[in-house]
């Protein structure tokens, strides 16, 4: 089959979104289903079909989402209402919009990589947690346990005070 000439193809836009919390990376397929679900629930099936949202890549705390040109604002609005991927609580924040993937890849390379230090065991309010320390005093605590695995977002000052 002969491919459609470029002038007759649909124009696309690419969104760079920051994933919060950045680690562990969500499964791209699960993220795709979550994005489609939030678009469909907010704008309906007809608009989702016109928008055609697709997750291109996902990793290192960032994801790239493609949509049809003219629908990028609606895609960003739908992304604001995304709260979970599978069972995991998540938030996506749009960082940039571009007409090419190359421009977004350049943008990612300009952004500082998210670094963290893992602390195997830490006690907070008589409970045992595994911790991730990020720059700017941020500390994420994951409770160790089988029944409940509480997730806390604190700062270094909070840990020193407790």
């Amino acid at each position: 089959m002969k491919p459609r000439p470029p002038t007759m193809r649909e124009k696309k836009r690419y969104l760079l979104v920051r994933i919060d919390p950045p680690f562990p990376d969500p499964d791209p397929k699960e993220l795709y289903f979550a994005v489609v679900e939030s678009v469909t629930s907010l704008f309906g099936d007809a608009e989702a079909a016109r928008m055609m949202p697709v997750v291109i890549t996902c990793g290192s705390g960032y994801a790239m989402i493609r949509c049809i040109r003219g629908y990028e604002e609606k895609a960003r609005t739908a992304i604001v209402t995304l709260t979970s991927v599978g069972e995991r609580r998540i938030a996506l924040h749009a960082v940039a919009t571009s007409g090419t993937l190359l421009a977004l890849r350049r943008k990612i390379s300009m952004l500082s990589l998210i670094s963290f230090e893992v602390v195997a065991s830490l006690r907070f309010r008589d409970r045992e947690y595994a911790a991730r320390r990020y720059p700017c005093q941020k500390v994420d605590l994951h409770e160790k346990g089988i029944k409940s695995q509480e997730l806390l977002f604190l700062t270094q000052d909070d840990l020193e005070e407790s």
Binding site: Q137, L152, F153, T155, D158
Partner: peptide, 19 residues
Amino acid sequence: PYPAGNSSVRRMAIEAGAL
């Protein structure tokens, strides 16, 4: 913020400032 939620007020302030 914590204890009603899962984030301390300081962490909320950092994230709100970043946003």
